[in-house]
Structure formats: C-alpha cells, structure tokens
Amino acid sequence: MEYFLQQLINGVTLGAIYGLIALGYTMVYGIIGMINFAHGEVYMIGAFIAVTAFTALGVAGVTFVPLALAVVLLVAVTFTAAYGWTVERVAYRPLRGAPRLAPLISAIGMSIFLQNYVQLLQGARVKPLAPVIRGGFELLHANQFSVQLSYIQCFIILATVVLIAVFTLMIARTPLGRAQRACEQDRTMAALLGVDVDRTISLTFVIGAALAAVAGVMVTMYYGVVDFFIGFQAGLKAFTAAVLGGIGSLPGAMLGGLLIGLVEAFYSAYFSIEYKDVAAFSILVLVLVFRPSGLLGRPEVEKV
C-alpha cells in the first residue's frame, strides 16, 4: 500500500510534465491539423536553457531559491518561446497549403537539426545539475517504508495546476483564445472575419513552446540530468498522451499525460522497467482501436 502510494505520487509528477508537453502538441494539432514533430526538441531546448540559467545564477551567487526559480522560469520561457516561434516561421509557414506530408517532413528535418544543433553546441555528454530544492514531506511511515512527497514534486504538481488554470482561462476568455478557437473551426472563415490567422498560429506555437519550457525546467530540477536526446522520447510519449486524451482537447491532453505518467510509474514498479515504453504504446494502440477520438475528444462525424 505504501509502495503503491509512492508510485502514485511519482506517476502524477511524471504525468504533469508529460501533460504540459502534450498541451503544445494538442494546441498545434488543433489549429493547423499537423503533428509538430519538433515540439519534443523545443522541450529539450527548454531544459538546456534551464541548465544554463541555473549555472549562471550559481556563478552570480544567487542562493535564494524562489528568486532563482522565478528567474530561470522567466529566462527559459522567453528564449524557448523564441525557438517555438522560429520553428513555425521556418518549417511550417512557408509550407502552408503544400501537400499534406511536406510540413511533416520539414518538421522532422527541424527536429533532427535542433537535436544536432544542441549536441554540437553544448556537447553530447549528460549535463548533471546539483539539486536546487532538497527535502520533502514524509507522508507515511509504515512497514519500514516511508512515502515521500518531495518539495520538488510539490512544486511540479502545483505549478502545473496553476498553469492549467491560467491557460484554460486564457483560451476561454481572451481575444487570443477566441481567435484560436475560431481558427480551429475554420481557418478560411476566421481570416474572412478579420482574425489574423498567421499571428494566431505563431502565438499558438509560442504558447506551446512556453509550456514545454516550463516542463523542461521541471524535468531538469526533478532528474538533475539533461542530454540532447531527451526530446525524442518525451515528445513521443507526450504525443501519445495527447492522442490518448483526444487530440485537440486541452483537458484531454492533461488527462492523457497523467495516465501515461501513471502507467509508466506503475508498470516500471510492478512489472518491468525495460518494457515501460512498450506498455505506454500498447495502451495508445488499444485506445485508438476502440475509441479513435481519444478519451475526451469529440467523435468526428464523417462529412460526405
């Protein structure tokens, strides 16, 4: 029971990170109907910028943790958002209206490019980072097993909840959110009604990248190691999460992320750690076969 509880906490933490990345996928898919293949790399870049920022703060002698955290988040979000914007501008915008596979290929190219770009500039070796926040709560202690909720896990879960709340309000209430929903429904019509479609799509990429950057900061602090390859695996799982939840659905992306995080935590705890990725994909296949629109997605009515 205690072990179960511990895995639950770990799974939720992992799920929050996947969910944040999945939001980026689902938003972009919603608006341009494309898998943003480079999104995983954008997240990886967020993690690298976080490492750099933490190191720089260490050099500058900033030791007050909340301040350091705020600065790192701000820096990572700003610069990563710039990368998100550029990805759209370079790999997607010139191909709007091109055959369906063309932007996907350019996005795969972008993903390969960014991976190697970071590897060349920052080195192929794993970057270790000293823990920023130590300690935690001991929730339970029984049968010589203690259930820990570390401060960092608290931070990840709380930050995610806050971000989701802000984000949901933004989509529902602001003109940008309205423009986004309009573009999702019908891009041509939105343009005719005066929505700046290019700008809306750009901003979608920027927001997605910002959320991925937050996930990058979290993962850096949580695991303490980062390398140039983390984007691929995490991207794949986050996309799985987005599809699982129902692509295009924002709550679905969070739910999907949570489920994937839980499956991964429990599967590695109770079965085998080697096959945890296989388990996640098997679930994806099962969901797609039995409920192709995902858990919270709207079923698509075929237009004849």
């Binding site: 370079v90 790999a91 010139p94 191909l95 091109a98 055959p99 063309a102 932007p103 290929i105 350019s106 795969i108 190219g109 972008m110 993903s111 390969i112 490019f113 960014l114 991976q115 190697n116 770009y117 060349l120």
Partner: peptide, 18 residues
C-alpha cells in the same frame, strides 16, 4: 552531417514541397 541533413530536409521541402 546530421545538422546539414536536417537542414537539407527543411530547405528542399520549402523549395519543392511536391
């Protein structure tokens, strides 16, 4: 090489999407 490979994929798609 992989850097150029990725870049080439993007540029060719922009140049000739078909």
């Amino acid at each position: 090489r992989m850097l150029v490979f990725g870049l080439a994929m993007i540029l060719i798609m922009i140049w000739r999407p078909q």
